[in-house]
Protein backbone atom coordinates (compact mmCIF):
# COMPACT_ATOMS: atom_id res chain seq x y z
CA UNK A 1 0.00 0.00 0.00
CA UNK A 2 2.75 2.43 0.97
CA UNK A 3 4.89 1.72 -2.04
CA UNK A 4 1.81 2.44 -3.99
CA UNK A 5 1.26 5.87 -2.52
CA UNK A 6 4.86 6.85 -2.99
CA UNK A 7 4.93 5.42 -6.43
CA UNK A 8 5.75 8.38 -8.68
CA UNK A 9 3.26 7.24 -11.26
CA UNK A 10 0.56 7.56 -8.60
CA UNK A 11 1.60 11.09 -7.74
CA UNK A 12 1.79 11.84 -11.42
CA UNK A 13 -1.82 10.80 -11.92
CA UNK A 14 -3.21 12.94 -9.09
CA UNK A 15 -3.45 16.19 -11.11
CA UNK A 16 -5.63 14.43 -13.69
CA UNK A 17 -8.14 13.66 -10.98
CA UNK A 18 -7.81 16.98 -9.19
CA UNK A 19 -8.41 19.06 -12.30
CA UNK A 20 -12.06 18.21 -13.03
CA UNK A 21 -13.09 18.42 -9.38
CA UNK A 22 -11.22 21.70 -8.89
CA UNK A 23 -12.59 23.35 -12.03
CA UNK A 24 -16.15 22.32 -11.29
CA UNK A 25 -15.84 23.31 -7.64
CA UNK A 26 -14.50 26.75 -8.58
CA UNK A 27 -17.52 27.16 -10.81
CA UNK A 28 -19.76 26.02 -7.98
CA UNK A 29 -17.95 28.47 -5.71
CA UNK A 30 -18.94 31.40 -7.91
CA UNK A 31 -22.57 30.34 -7.55
CA UNK A 32 -22.26 29.69 -3.84
CA UNK A 33 -20.74 33.11 -3.23
CA UNK A 34 -23.47 34.74 -5.30
CA UNK A 35 -26.20 32.97 -3.39
CA UNK A 36 -27.21 30.62 -6.20
CA UNK A 37 -27.72 27.15 -4.78
CA UNK A 38 -26.47 25.26 -7.82
CA UNK A 39 -26.06 21.59 -6.95
CA UNK A 40 -26.40 20.49 -10.56
CA UNK A 41 -22.64 20.51 -11.24
CA UNK A 42 -22.85 16.84 -12.20
CA UNK A 43 -25.01 17.70 -15.19
CA UNK A 44 -22.80 20.63 -16.15
CA UNK A 45 -19.68 18.45 -16.21
CA UNK A 46 -21.34 15.67 -18.17
CA UNK A 47 -22.55 18.12 -20.79
CA UNK A 48 -19.09 19.67 -21.00
CA UNK A 49 -17.52 16.26 -21.49
CA UNK A 50 -19.82 15.45 -24.37
CA UNK A 51 -19.43 18.72 -26.19
CA UNK A 52 -15.65 18.70 -25.77
CA UNK A 53 -15.59 15.41 -27.68
CA UNK A 54 -17.99 16.83 -30.25
CA UNK A 55 -15.84 19.90 -30.86
CA UNK A 56 -12.59 18.00 -30.96
CA UNK A 57 -14.00 15.32 -33.27
CA UNK A 58 -15.23 17.75 -35.88
CA UNK A 59 -12.31 20.18 -35.87
CA UNK A 60 -9.43 18.02 -34.77
CA UNK A 61 -8.48 20.66 -32.22
CA UNK A 62 -8.72 20.06 -28.48
CA UNK A 63 -8.81 23.81 -28.01
CA UNK A 64 -11.96 24.11 -30.03
CA UNK A 65 -13.24 21.08 -28.16
CA UNK A 66 -12.68 22.92 -24.88
CA UNK A 67 -14.31 26.03 -26.30
CA UNK A 68 -17.35 24.01 -27.37
CA UNK A 69 -17.53 22.57 -23.86
CA UNK A 70 -17.36 26.07 -22.38
CA UNK A 71 -20.17 27.27 -24.62
CA UNK A 72 -22.30 24.25 -23.76
CA UNK A 73 -21.67 24.86 -20.06
CA UNK A 74 -22.66 28.50 -20.46
CA UNK A 75 -25.85 27.48 -22.26
CA UNK A 76 -26.72 25.22 -19.38
CA UNK A 77 -25.94 28.08 -16.99
CA UNK A 78 -28.40 30.21 -18.92
CA UNK A 79 -31.03 27.47 -18.64
CA UNK A 80 -30.43 27.41 -14.89
CA UNK A 81 -30.72 31.20 -14.76
CA UNK A 82 -33.93 31.21 -16.76
CA UNK A 83 -35.69 28.74 -14.50
CA UNK A 84 -34.19 29.65 -11.15
CA UNK A 85 -33.54 33.38 -11.36
CA UNK A 86 -36.17 34.57 -13.80
CA UNK A 87 -39.01 32.14 -13.25
CA UNK A 88 -38.26 31.65 -9.57
CA UNK A 89 -38.01 27.86 -9.57
CA UNK A 90 -36.51 26.18 -6.54
CA UNK A 91 -32.77 25.78 -7.13
CA UNK A 92 -32.70 22.20 -5.87
CA UNK A 93 -35.45 21.24 -8.30
CA UNK A 94 -33.72 23.03 -11.15
CA UNK A 95 -30.45 21.30 -10.28
CA UNK A 96 -32.04 17.87 -10.28
CA UNK A 97 -33.70 18.66 -13.58
CA UNK A 98 -30.39 19.82 -15.04
CA UNK A 99 -28.76 16.55 -14.01
CA UNK A 100 -31.50 14.48 -15.62
CA UNK A 101 -31.47 16.73 -18.67
CA UNK A 102 -27.73 16.28 -19.09
CA UNK A 103 -27.95 12.51 -18.70
CA UNK A 104 -30.76 12.32 -21.26
CA UNK A 105 -29.38 14.85 -23.69
CA UNK A 106 -25.87 13.38 -23.88
CA UNK A 107 -27.11 9.82 -24.50
CA UNK A 108 -29.70 11.09 -26.94
CA UNK A 109 -27.14 13.10 -28.89
CA UNK A 110 -24.69 10.22 -28.73
CA UNK A 111 -27.17 8.19 -30.72
CA UNK A 112 -28.49 11.03 -32.82
CA UNK A 113 -25.12 12.36 -33.91
CA UNK A 114 -22.66 9.49 -33.65
CA UNK A 115 -25.15 6.64 -33.84
CA UNK A 116 -23.56 4.69 -31.00
CA UNK A 117 -24.85 3.47 -27.66
CA UNK A 118 -22.90 3.74 -24.44
CA UNK A 119 -19.55 5.09 -25.59
CA UNK A 120 -18.02 6.96 -28.45
CA UNK A 121 -14.38 6.71 -29.36
CA UNK A 122 -12.73 7.66 -32.60
CA UNK A 123 -9.22 8.53 -33.76
CA UNK A 124 -10.53 11.88 -34.94
CA UNK A 125 -11.01 12.98 -31.34
CA UNK A 126 -7.79 14.81 -30.61
CA UNK A 127 -6.99 15.11 -26.91
CA UNK A 128 -4.87 17.67 -25.07
CA UNK A 129 -1.24 16.54 -24.93
CA UNK A 130 0.83 16.76 -21.78
CA UNK A 131 2.89 19.92 -21.48
CA UNK A 132 6.48 19.42 -20.45
CA UNK A 133 7.98 22.31 -18.58
CA UNK A 134 11.76 22.23 -19.11
CA UNK A 135 13.24 23.08 -15.70
CA UNK A 136 10.41 21.93 -13.50
CA UNK A 137 10.53 18.56 -15.14
CA UNK A 138 13.91 17.79 -13.68
CA UNK A 139 12.88 18.32 -10.04
CA UNK A 140 12.89 14.89 -8.46
CA UNK A 141 9.44 13.44 -7.67
CA UNK A 142 7.57 16.76 -7.81
CA UNK A 143 8.72 17.35 -11.36
CA UNK A 144 6.60 14.53 -12.62
CA UNK A 145 3.59 15.93 -10.82
CA UNK A 146 4.01 19.55 -11.85
CA UNK A 147 5.21 18.94 -15.36
CA UNK A 148 3.82 16.74 -18.06
CA UNK A 149 0.17 17.50 -17.32
CA UNK A 150 -2.51 18.59 -19.78
CA UNK A 151 -2.94 22.32 -20.09
CA UNK A 152 -6.28 22.36 -18.27
CA UNK A 153 -4.49 21.41 -15.05
CA UNK A 154 -2.41 24.56 -15.24
CA UNK A 155 -5.46 26.60 -16.06
CA UNK A 156 -7.29 25.14 -13.08
CA UNK A 157 -4.44 25.89 -10.69
CA UNK A 158 -4.07 29.42 -12.05
CA UNK A 159 -7.80 29.93 -11.63
CA UNK A 160 -7.53 29.57 -7.85
CA UNK A 161 -5.63 32.82 -7.15
CA UNK A 162 -7.36 34.49 -10.06
CA UNK A 163 -10.80 33.86 -8.65
CA UNK A 164 -9.64 34.76 -5.17
CA UNK A 165 -8.36 38.09 -6.42
CA UNK A 166 -11.43 38.63 -8.56
CA UNK A 167 -13.76 38.18 -5.58
CA UNK A 168 -11.67 40.47 -3.41
CA UNK A 169 -10.91 43.31 -5.77
CA UNK A 170 -13.16 43.28 -8.78
CA UNK A 171 -16.41 45.20 -9.00
CA UNK A 172 -18.34 42.14 -10.11
CA UNK A 173 -16.57 40.01 -7.49
CA UNK A 174 -17.61 42.38 -4.73
CA UNK A 175 -21.17 42.35 -6.01
CA UNK A 176 -21.18 38.56 -6.26
CA UNK A 177 -20.26 38.38 -2.58
CA UNK A 178 -22.97 40.90 -1.77
CA UNK A 179 -25.57 38.97 -3.77
CA UNK A 180 -24.79 35.92 -1.67
CA UNK A 181 -24.81 37.66 1.68
CA UNK A 182 -27.36 40.46 1.60
CA UNK A 183 -28.86 40.95 -1.86
CA UNK A 184 -31.26 43.58 -0.52
CA UNK A 185 -28.26 45.91 -0.22
CA UNK A 186 -27.62 45.56 -3.94
CA UNK A 187 -31.25 46.33 -4.69
CA UNK A 188 -31.05 49.41 -2.50
CA UNK A 189 -27.90 50.42 -4.30
CA UNK A 190 -29.60 50.12 -7.65
CA UNK A 191 -27.89 46.92 -8.78
CA UNK A 192 -29.96 43.88 -9.68
CA UNK A 193 -28.77 40.82 -7.76
CA UNK A 194 -30.20 38.62 -10.47
CA UNK A 195 -27.91 40.08 -13.10
CA UNK A 196 -24.97 39.50 -10.78
CA UNK A 197 -26.13 35.95 -10.20
CA UNK A 198 -26.56 35.43 -13.92
CA UNK A 199 -22.89 36.29 -14.38
CA UNK A 200 -21.90 33.82 -11.70
CA UNK A 201 -23.88 31.10 -13.48
CA UNK A 202 -22.17 31.94 -16.76
CA UNK A 203 -18.79 31.66 -15.06
CA UNK A 204 -19.86 28.43 -13.42
CA UNK A 205 -21.00 26.98 -16.75
CA UNK A 206 -17.70 27.85 -18.40
CA UNK A 207 -15.59 26.33 -15.61
CA UNK A 208 -17.71 23.17 -15.44
CA UNK A 209 -17.50 22.87 -19.22
CA UNK A 210 -13.71 22.84 -18.88
CA UNK A 211 -14.00 20.26 -16.11
CA UNK A 212 -15.90 18.05 -18.54
CA UNK A 213 -13.30 18.66 -21.24
CA UNK A 214 -10.61 17.46 -18.85
CA UNK A 215 -12.54 14.20 -18.36
CA UNK A 216 -13.20 13.47 -22.02
CA UNK A 217 -10.39 15.00 -24.05
CA UNK A 218 -7.48 15.20 -21.62
CA UNK A 219 -7.65 12.17 -19.33
CA UNK A 220 -8.90 10.04 -22.21
CA UNK A 221 -10.19 10.77 -25.66
CA UNK A 222 -13.67 9.35 -25.67
CA UNK A 223 -17.12 9.93 -24.27
CA UNK A 224 -18.89 7.36 -22.10
CA UNK A 225 -22.47 7.64 -20.88
CA UNK A 226 -22.58 9.17 -17.40
CA UNK A 227 -18.80 9.62 -17.40
CA UNK A 228 -18.93 12.36 -14.75
CA UNK A 229 -19.76 9.49 -12.38
CA UNK A 230 -20.56 11.53 -9.30
CA UNK A 231 -17.62 13.95 -9.49
CA UNK A 232 -20.05 16.84 -9.73
CA UNK A 233 -21.54 15.84 -6.40
CA UNK A 234 -18.10 15.67 -4.86
CA UNK A 235 -17.45 19.15 -6.19
CA UNK A 236 -20.73 20.27 -4.62
CA UNK A 237 -19.60 18.88 -1.28
CA UNK A 238 -16.27 20.66 -1.65
CA UNK A 239 -18.08 23.93 -2.29
CA UNK A 240 -20.41 23.52 0.67
CA UNK A 241 -17.55 22.55 2.97
CA UNK A 242 -15.45 25.56 2.10
CA UNK A 243 -18.36 27.95 1.60
CA UNK A 244 -16.91 28.74 -1.78
CA UNK A 245 -13.55 30.13 -0.69
CA UNK A 246 -10.99 29.38 -3.43
CA UNK A 247 -7.91 28.44 -1.39
CA UNK A 248 -9.56 25.97 0.98
CA UNK A 249 -11.35 24.64 -2.06
CA UNK A 250 -8.00 23.94 -3.68
CA UNK A 251 -6.94 21.92 -0.65
CA UNK A 252 -10.16 19.90 -0.57
CA UNK A 253 -9.96 19.28 -4.31
CA UNK A 254 -6.44 17.92 -3.89
CA UNK A 255 -7.62 15.57 -1.14
CA UNK A 256 -10.61 14.33 -3.11
CA UNK A 257 -8.57 14.09 -6.30
CA UNK A 258 -5.90 12.07 -4.51
CA UNK A 259 -8.48 9.63 -3.17
CA UNK A 260 -10.01 9.36 -6.61
CA UNK A 261 -6.61 8.66 -8.06
CA UNK A 262 -5.75 6.20 -5.29
CA UNK A 263 -8.95 4.28 -5.87
CA UNK A 264 -7.90 3.93 -9.47
CA UNK A 265 -4.48 2.65 -8.48
CA UNK A 266 -5.54 0.08 -5.89
CA UNK A 267 -7.63 -1.75 -8.43
CA UNK A 268 -4.40 -3.43 -9.37
CA UNK A 269 -4.13 -4.79 -5.84
CA UNK A 270 -6.89 -7.34 -6.21
CA UNK A 271 -9.43 -5.29 -4.31
CA UNK A 272 -12.81 -5.67 -5.97
CA UNK A 273 -13.54 -2.83 -8.31
CA UNK A 274 -16.77 -2.05 -6.50
CA UNK A 275 -14.84 -1.09 -3.37
CA UNK A 276 -12.42 1.10 -5.23
CA UNK A 277 -15.32 2.77 -7.02
CA UNK A 278 -16.89 3.43 -3.66
CA UNK A 279 -13.80 5.06 -2.18
CA UNK A 280 -14.27 8.66 -3.35
CA UNK A 281 -17.78 8.80 -1.90
CA UNK A 282 -16.92 7.13 1.35
CA UNK A 283 -13.89 9.38 1.66
CA UNK A 284 -16.07 12.41 1.00
CA UNK A 285 -18.49 11.31 3.69
CA UNK A 286 -15.64 10.73 6.12
CA UNK A 287 -14.20 14.17 5.43
CA UNK A 288 -17.64 15.65 6.05
CA UNK A 289 -18.00 13.75 9.29
CA UNK A 290 -14.53 14.70 10.47
CA UNK A 291 -15.04 18.37 9.65
CA UNK A 292 -18.42 18.50 11.34
CA UNK A 293 -16.99 16.99 14.47
CA UNK A 294 -14.10 19.37 14.39
CA UNK A 295 -16.42 22.35 13.97
CA UNK A 296 -18.56 21.18 16.85
CA UNK A 297 -15.54 20.96 19.10
CA UNK A 298 -14.59 24.46 18.05
CA UNK A 299 -17.87 25.98 19.11
CA UNK A 300 -18.14 24.22 22.46
Amino acid sequence: MFELIFDPSFAESIPRFVTPILLAALGGALCERAGVFNIGLEGFILTGAFFAVLGSYYTGSPWIGALTAILAGIMLGLVFAEFNLRRGGNPIVVSIAINILAAGLTTYLLRAIFDVIGAFTDPNIVPFRPIHIPLVESIPFLGRVLSGQPVLFYIAVAAVPAIHYFLARHRLGLRIRAAGENPAALVAGGVSPRIVQLWSLIGCGALCGLAGAQLSIANVSLFVENMSAGRGWIAVVAVLLTRGRPWPLFLIAIIFGAVDSLSFRVQGLGLAQQFTDMMPYVATLLVLVALSWWRKRQTI
Binding site: F83, V93, I96, A97, I98, I100, L101, G104, L105, T107
Partner: peptide
Protein backbone atom coordinates in the same frame (compact mmCIF):
# COMPACT_ATOMS: atom_id res chain seq x y z
CA UNK B 1 -35.73 11.43 -25.21
CA UNK B 2 -37.90 10.46 -22.24
CA UNK B 3 -35.36 11.81 -19.75
CA UNK B 4 -35.02 15.04 -21.68
CA UNK B 5 -38.79 15.46 -21.74
CA UNK B 6 -38.98 14.70 -18.01
CA UNK B 7 -36.36 17.31 -17.26
CA UNK B 8 -37.95 19.93 -19.48
CA UNK B 9 -41.40 19.29 -18.03
CA UNK B 10 -40.20 19.60 -14.48
CA UNK B 11 -38.24 22.76 -15.29
Amino acid sequence: IAFIMQAVIIL
